[in-house]
C-alpha cells in the first residue's frame, strides 16, 4: 500500500520551526544540590565551604567538581566570618547628580578557603586605602533570606600588627 506523499491530511499536531533563535530562550540547567545547602547555611548565618576529601581544598562558594581530583566534594566545613583581600579594582560610576564616584570591587578570600569570590566593599571606606592582604569581615544583610546577597558586603577590620608595621615604616 504505497502512500502517495502528496496526500493532504489534516493534522492535529503541527510543528513550528522558528526562523530565528534568541539566546534568552536558552534553558540553562544547573545542579542545585550543593548550592541549596550553602544558601540554607547563609539563611542561618553560617558561612559554609565545601572540602574535597582527596586534596583538602576548600571552595567557597561551593564548587560542584574538584578539578584537581575529578571527584565531587561532599564535606561541608563552617568558615569564619573573616577574610582577606586577594586583589581589587575600582570602577567609577555616576551618582544621581552625575558626579563620578569610585566603586571598589574586591576579590575576597574567605579565611580557611582556597578560592576567591568577588564582592562589594563597604562604601564608607576610601578605596585608596585598600591593599592586597587587607583583613576583612563579612557584614550580614539586615534580613537573611537564604540568597547569595545575604552577605551584604565586606568591611575592613583593624589589624594591630599591620598598623604597627606601617608605623615602623614611617619611622
Amino acid at each position: 500500500m504505497p502512500l502517495p506523499d502528496y496526500e493532504k491530511k489534516s493534522y492535529k499536531r503541527t510543528r513550528t520551526m522558528h526562523g530565528n533563535w534568541y539566546l534568552a530562550s536558552y534553558r540553562y540547567k544547573f545542579n542545585l544540590s550543593r548550592t541549596k545547602v550553602f544558601l540554607k547555611g547563609l539563611a542561618k548565618g553560617h558561612i559554609l565551604g565545601l572540602k574535597c576529601r582527596s586534596c583538602n581544598t576548600v571552595s567557597f562558594p561551593p564548587r560542584l567538581i574538584c578539578g584537581r581530583c575529578l571527584v565531587k566534594p561532599d564535606q561541608w566545613v563552617r568558615l569564619p566570618e573573616t577574610a582577606s583581600v586577594s586583589t581589587f579594582s575600582a570602577n567609577y560610576d555616576a551618582d544621581d547628580k552625575n558626579r563620578e564616584r569610585p566603586y571598589p570591587i574586591v576579590a575576597v578570600q574567605q579565611d580557611g578557603t582556597d578560592t576567591v569570590w568577588v564582592h562589594n566593599l563597604t562604601d564608607k571606606f576610601d578605596f585608596h586605602d585598600v591593599y592586597v592582604g587587607m583583613p576583612l569581615k563579612a557584614v550580614w544583610a539586615e534580613e537573611r533570606k537564604g540568597i547569595w546577597m545575604d552577605i551584604d558586603h565586606y568591611e575592613p577590620i583593624e589589624d594591630p600588627a599591620i598598623e604597627l608595621n606601617k608605623k615602623e615604616e614611617e619611622m
Binding site: 520551526m17 522558528h18 526562523g19 530565528n20 530562550s25 534553558r27 540547567k29
Partner: peptide, 25 residues
C-alpha cells in the same frame, strides 16, 4: 549534547548561508 535546553532545529537554521539561504528561510 543537551537539545532539551534549546530549539535544535531553529539553531540549525543558523547554519544556513546568511546571504542566500537564510533570508529565504
Amino acid at each position: 549534547s543537551t537539545p532539551s535546553c534549546y530549539q535544535y532545529e531553529s539553531v540549525r537554521v543558523l547554519e544556513n548561508d546568511p546571504t542566500f539561504d537564510r533570508p529565504i528561510n
